[in-house]
């Protein structure tokens, strides 16, 4: 599945790295706790989160996560978007809540979980 497919499925707004929409993604992790991402998001290249602060971008950068989906219409600040852009992270904003966002993606069967031990 590409980031572009995700964008269409979620009717999401693209906030950074438009040029990476054709990038293939395979595994997602959903959490508002960045420590949980650091501990458990083993092979994720997509992060779904309702947390909206610069540490989301940092966490994604340090874990090589290439796409962040902010849920419930949470809009990152310009400085957060710049941080994502500088690190090649594609940022999407969806109006769906976390349960719906994860469910829509999981239902396609084309994107899996990314949790250590699962």
């Amino acid at each position: 599945m590409t980031v572009s497919d995700i964008q269409k499925l979620l009717n999401a707004k693209v906030l950074s790295c438009n040029e990476k929409l054709n990038m293939e993604v395979t595994n997602a992790f959903a959490s508002d706790m960045m420590s949980d991402c650091l501990a458990f998001a083993k092979d994720a290249n997509v992060l779904i989160t309702g947390l909206c602060n610069p540490q989301v971008m940092r966490t994604a950068e340090l874990l090589d996560i290439e796409c962040i989906i902010f849920i419930k219409g949470k809009e990152p600040t310009d400085s957060m978007i710049t941080l994502a852009q500088n690190n090649g992270i594609c940022v999407l904003m969806s109006e769906y809540c976390m349960f719906e966002t994860a469910g829509i993606l999981f239902k396609t069967g084309e994107i899996g979980g990314a949790t250590v031990g699962c």
Partner: peptide
């Protein structure tokens, strides 16, 4: 509220 403080820092 900032996404940390879950008691996973030192264990991680």
């Amino acid at each position: 509220m900032l996404g940390f403080g879950a008691g996973m820092g030192l264990p991680n």
